[in-house]
Design a protein around this nucleic acid. Structure first.
Lengths: 157, 157
DNA sequence: TCGGCATCGTACGTACACGAACGATATGGG
DNA sequence: CCCATATCGTTCGTGTACGTACGATGCCGA
């Protein structure tokens, strides 16, 4: 293992000179978001109660639970997913009989999606564990910091 | 923006019935992290200066730039990537002649990775745009909020 | 009414992400 | 010295993510 203590910076002062801050990949927001998202997904997987349901499938089913019926593109916009990505998510949910579809009456381009009875049953069950997922992910922070993080994240989306 | 009904909560913590906070998917940290990560990746792609370099490839090359030579697994640990994921990233970098490898002398299991001359040239060029990527991603926040976000993200990783 | 343009869903290619299983190699304890 | 165990890199399968291109359909203005 290489020792990386090589050079010591003589106390770079806190803020105020943003240009002199060294560029470290570990301090870049994109890098931190990738790592944080990885951890959140991993916690979701072990906490939500069904290892075969992914975060995006969960979000999609939640929206169908809320809206009853949605076209595929509309659902994608609601959960922030590309229509190509949505296509795969919906296909897998349909294969598992958690989601059903019917042609849109009056617009032959669209397909209306809805939860099956089985889908309703499952999402109702998983919903119980939803708060635990967020709680566990945010555990390192206190209440005020948790709210702060959620607000800052909302603002950069 | 939701009004912060900051009534101090007495010790009647709604342990099992948090009626005060409805569960909305858009307010869950995992969902927000997914969306924020999407946006950061998209900004990276259009800002870094080479549409064929991805964030993970960039991180990996940065680490090789810093350490000169690393085994594949070691590199993966440094940038927070699974060894199976690392395998694909390294393969693509090698196919583009940005990274080279040689057997580890003294440990036949390992492969030592390093940047090629071309890889050095490229990462040096992209490095110039690195700060702009983070700046653009964090643009909706002021300086103090930016630092706060980075700190909170670090702590939940 | 019809032609241009937008939208819907699909298909293909590329890339990240990770669990699981695998063979080869290294290492430490008995 | 030898075997149990660990590590290293690879492969396979599944899923998210998005750009691009495509055909079918809907809509609107000339």
């Amino acid at each position: 293992m290489r020792s990386n203590v090589a050079r010591r910076q003589p106390e770079t002062k806190p803020a105020s000179s943003p240009a002199s801050r060294p560029y470290r990949i570990e301090e870049q927001v994109g890098y931190l978001l990738r790592r944080a998202h990885q951890r959140a997904s991993s916690i979701f997987q072990v906490t939500i109660g069904d290892p075969n349901i992914t975060p995006t499938q969960y979000s999609s089913m939640m929206k169908l639970h809320e809206y009853t019926e949605l076209s595929q593109n509309h659902l994608g916009r609601l959960v922030g997913m590309d229509k190509a990505t949505m296509q795969g998510v919906v296909r897998r949910l349909k294969e598992r009989r958690l989601v059903d579809s019917r042609p849109h009456p009056g617009d032959a381009r669209r397909t209306l999606l809805s939860l099956t009875t089985e889908g309703h049953r499952l999402i109702t069950k998983l919903l119980v564990n939803g708060p635990a997922v967020s709680r566990e992910t945010l555990k390192p922070l206190n209440n005020q910091e948790q709210r702060q993080l959620l607000e800052l994240l909302s603002r950069i989306i």
